[in-house]
């Protein structure tokens, strides 16, 4: 049975250059809810689709700062406040000796933020996504390039959009069921 609530229309392209050109046209035509699917990252595509900002570097910075402060605070509190040991009269707050662990905590927290943040912002892991309903989509992880205009876009029209995509050198255009 056909699902009436379609996810959108999927156009298939044979080359990266065709896809980038098509993505630019789709964006210029006023579509905003669309996505491209490629077997490898394409720098030019980010620009064509208008992808400029990601919050990730900022999050990683915050993660790193918190990790560093947390690591240093842990060492300060344990060595000076909670469990002070007098070793030959040396100062309890021997901060230079705390730097290596502070550094490692900074890197660990920043690295964890980078990985988990990337996955979270990308919405992964995601067990189901409508694009996988198209059998040829398996080629998106091999050598084909796809562009999907989503039905939630206000400019989306099942007939008009299909015509538009077919005019963009697409090898084929198919409906994506949700």
């Amino acid at each position: 049975m056909r699902n009436l609530a379609a996810h959108g229309l999927m156009a298939e392209f044979a080359s990266a250059a065709d896809l980038v050109a098509a993505a630019r046209e789709v964006r210029e035509a006023g579509y905003r809810h669309f996505d491209a699917y490629t077997p490898f990252p394409i720098e030019e595509l980010d620009e064509a689709m208008g992808l400029h900002h990601t919050r990730l570097p900022f999050l990683v910075l915050i993660g790193g700062i918190l990790g560093g402060l947390g690591g240093f605070a842990l060492q300060y509190w344990t060595s000076v406040v909670n469990y002070p040991i007098n070793v030959g009269g040396r100062p309890l707050f021997s901060w230079p000796a705390f730097i290596p662990v502070t550094f490692e905590c900074t890197i660990l927290a920043a690295g964890l933020t980078a990985v988990l943040g990337m996955l979270a912002l990308n919405g992964l892991p995601q067990p189901y996504h409508p694009v996988f309903n198209i059998s040829r989509f398996a080629l998106a992880s091999r050598d084909r390039f796809f562009l999907c205009v989503e039905a939630r876009d206000p400019r989306y029209d099942p007939v008009e959009t299909r015509h538009f995509l077919e005019g963009l050198d697409a090898r084929r255009v198919s409906d994506v069921e949700s």
Binding site: A23, D35, A36, Y37, T38, P39, F40, P41, I42, L45, D46, M49, L51, T54, L56, M118, L119, L121, N122, L124, P125, Q126, P127, Y128, H129, V131, F132, F137, A140, S141
Partner: peptide
């Protein structure tokens, strides 16, 4: 984990 090669994902990736 459901990776689909989305351009938006690649960008953050």
């Amino acid at each position: 984990m459901g990776w689909r090669g989305s351009a938006r994902h690649w960008h953050r990736y």
